[in-house]
Design a protein around this nucleic acid. Sequence first.
DNA 1: ATTATATATTCGAATTTATCGAACATAAAC
DNA 2: GTTTATGTTCGATAAATTCGAATATATAAT
Lengths: 299, 299
Amino acid sequence: MITLKQINYALSVSRNLHFKKAADECSVSPSTLSNAVTEMENQLGYEIFERDNKRVLKTELGKIFLESAQSIKLQIDDLEKLAHLKKEPLSHSLSLGIIPTIGPYLLPVVLPAIKKEYPLLNLTIIEGQSEVLVDKVKRGEIDTAILALPFELEGLLPFKFWEEDFFWISHKESKHALKKEISAKELEESELMLLEEGHCLKDQALEACKLSSNSNLNITASSLTTLIQLVAGKMGSTLVPEMALEQLLANNKLLSKAHLKETGPHREIALIIRSTYNGLRDIELLKELFSKELKKKFK
Amino acid sequence: MITLKQINYALSVSRNLHFKKAADECSVSPSTLSNAVTEMENQLGYEIFERDNKRVLKTELGKIFLESAQSIKLQIDDLEKLAHLKKEPLSHSLSLGIIPTIGPYLLPVVLPAIKKEYPLLNLTIIEGQSEVLVDKVKRGEIDTAILALPFELEGLLPFKFWEEDFFWISHKESKHALKKEISAKELEESELMLLEEGHCLKDQALEACKLSSNSNLNITASSLTTLIQLVAGKMGSTLVPEMALEQLLANNKLLSKAHLKETGPHREIALIIRSTYNGLRDIELLKELFSKELKKKFK
DNA sequence: ATTATATATTCGAATTTATCGAACATAAAC
DNA sequence: GTTTATGTTCGATAAATTCGAATATATAAT
C-alpha cells in the first residue's frame, strides 16, 4: 500500500523537478525523500521519474500518476477542512422526532426562528409517539426528539426547555364552565375524555390530577383536535396543554377553559439525545432557541 | 497529515459498523484499529463514528468524509493498477458488465475475435441490468460495462460502438404480419408485450414508438427468449433489437418480422467507464474490435 | 437484581518503520 | 584534472505502529 506521505513527496519532486529542492520544501533530508519515492515506485511497479544526478524528468506513466495524485491530494485537503462545517453550528442536517401533542403547537412557534437563525440547517421532522421516538433515538435513526416528561428515557439525556400546565376544556353550558380555575376533585364528576392509549399526554394528565386510568374514561380519541370536537358536541370535557389552547379554541365560541389547579408544572418539554451524541452544541442551541421563542409567545 | 491506512481502516469500520469485525477484515488487532481511527479523528478535528461498546454509528460529518474517502480509495487503487498500462494492451484482467438484452447476442459475435487478438486477456463477464451495472462501475467493482443508451449514466463516460433499430415480431397469422415495415401507429392496435420492469429495453422500445407505459402492456416477460415463445403462442407481438433477430427467429417458422418505421437509431450500444479510469487505451481497443466484428456480421 | 457476554478502549512492551548524516557515485562545468 | 552539484546507499538512531493483557461499560440473560 502506498502512502500519502510518499504521494506528497512525489508531488513536491514534480513541482521542483529537483530532489534536493523538494527535500527542502518537505523539510526532510534528500535521502529520506529519495528512498520514499523509490519505494513507492517499487510498490507501484513503474517509475514516476526518470533521473540521474543531473536531470529529473517525468515518465509518461508518471505524468498520469502525478495528475491523479494531485487531485487526490486536493480531496484529502478538503476532508481536513471539513471540520469547519462543524464550526458553524446547526449548518448540516438534523433529524428531529416530535410527539403529536407538541408538534402542531410548538413547530409553528419555532420554525420561523430556526429558518432565520440557521438557514443552512436541513431539518427533518418525524412525528411519532414517545416510545417509538425513544427507540429511534437509541438506535441512531434520528438525532434527537422532543418529548413531554415525565417519561421513561432508558438512559437518554433530557434537555428541558419548557414547562406548562394543563387546562380543562368544557362546553360553555356544562357545570363549572365559567370558572377560571378548577381542581382535580371537581373534575372527577365530569366525563373526562383523553387521548387513546400510547399518548403520553393521557398518563401525564392523569398524573397531574392524581387519577388512575381505571376511572370513568370510556371515550378516547386519536388527536387533540378530535377531542375538542367531541367536547363541542357535548360528549364530555378534556384536558389540554397550554401551548395548544390558542389553536384548539380558535373559532369555537362554544368552549370554555379553566386552569387545572394542581401542583405543577403538569408537563415538561425536553429534547432528548444519546449520551454519546456528538452534536451537543447544536442541541444546546436548539434548546435556547425554543425557550426564547416560547417565552416571547407565552410569557 | 492523515494516512491512507487510517482511511482504509475507517472505510472498513463503515462497511462493518463494528470495530472488531473491521479489525478482522483488516487483519489487525482491535486496539490498532481503534487507535488509528481515533488518531485520525483527532487530526481531522471531528468525529467520524459515534460509538460505545455496543453501537457504531456514522456522524453527519462522518458520512460526508466516508463518501469522499471511498472515492479516494478507488483512485488510489487505480494508480496502483496503472502499471498494466505499461504492458501489452488488453493483457491483464478486465471485468465487463453486460445487460441481458445485449449479452447473448453480442458476445458470440465478438468473443472469438477477442480470444484471437488478445489471448492474454483474462475477461470476466457479469450480466446485470443497467442500473446495477452503472452502480458497479461507479463503485469500481467492475472496470466497464456494455449498456444500451439512452440511459442515465450519472457521470460515467460512454464510448458508443454500435447503433441499431428495433424489429416488430408477430405471428404469421396476425394482422400486418406480412409487411416489411410497420409504424408505431399500427402497433398500438396489436397486443404489444415487453420485458418486465428494470430492463432498459422496455423503456427504449416505448420511446422509439413514442408510447408511454400506460398503454395496453399487460404481459411482461423476463427474457427476450420467453417473449418470443409467447409470440409464437399467439399471445401478442413484441419488439426486439436487430442483433437478436437471427438467434431468436432461428427454427421458428411461425414468426414474421417487420422493421419498425420510426426515426432512429432506436438504441445505441456503448462501453461505459469512470472518468478517472486508467485503461482508456484498452477500452478504445475493445470498442474498435466490437465495431469491426459487428460490421462484418451485420453490414 | 445479579451475572454473563460482547466489545471498544487504554496502556506498556516489543516490533517495525522512517529518518538522518556521512560516505559514495556520477556527471557536467571550469 | 579538479571542482561542484546532486542523487543514492548504508548503518545508527529516533519515531511510529502494533500487539496482547487489562479495563470499562453497555446489553442480554438468569
